[in-house]
Computed example of a mutant assay.
Amino acid sequence: MNEILFCGSNHYPKLIKNKPDRLSKRTHFKFENQNQNRSQIKQISSNFFSTIFLFENGKAIEHLQNSHQNPHKIPIENIQKVSVSFRNKAILTADGIVFAKGKHFNPNEFINISSLIEDKNDRVIEDIICTFKSIYLLTSNQNAYGTGANKDAQLGISPKTLRKTQKPILMMKNVSKIFSGNNSYHVFLLNLNQELFGCGDNDHGQLGLGKSTKEKWKIKKLTKIQKIPKGKIIDIQCGGSNSLMLVENQNQNPKRKLYSCGVYEHNGLGKRYKHTYKFTEIKSSLFENDDDILDFACGYSYTLILTRKGKLIGFGANDFGQLGIKDTTKTQSIPIQIELPKLRFNENISIIIFIPDILNHFFIILLFLLFLILKKI
Rank of each mutant, 00 (worst) to 15 (best):
A60Y: 07
H204P: 11
T131P: 14
S140L: 15
L269H: 02
I41F: 08
S134W: 11
I61C: 06
K255T: 01
F6I: 03
G156R: 02
Y136M: 06
N182H: 06
Q322M: 07
N360E: 07
Y259W: 07
G146T: 00
E32S: 13
I111V: 07
D95G: 03
L246R: 02
V187L: 12
H275D: 03
Q154F: 00
K330D: 08
P20V: 15
D95Q: 07
L366F: 06
L286I: 04
E62V: 09
L323G: 03
I377K: 10
P71R: 05
K89T: 15
E77G: 02
F368R: 02
K216S: 11
F31H: 08
F31I: 11
A153D: 00
N191Q: 14
K309V: 04
P71F: 09
F188Y: 15
K342I: 11
Y259F: 10
S241M: 08
N78D: 14
G324M: 00
P229A: 03
G205M: 02
Y277H: 13
I135F: 05
E215F: 03
N108I: 07
C261N: 14
P254L: 05
Q332N: 08
R26C: 02
F354L: 09
F345M: 14
G208W: 05
G262Y: 04
G239W: 02
G200P: 03
I233Y: 09
G210L: 05
G310Y: 05
Y12P: 00
L138E: 06
E56I: 00
L312T: 02
Y302H: 15
K216Y: 12
D21R: 12
E288H: 04
S9D: 06
G321N: 15
I128G: 09
G210W: 03
M1E: 13
I169S: 10
N174R: 14
I219R: 15
P341T: 00
N174Y: 10
F55A: 13
A317C: 14
K218W: 05
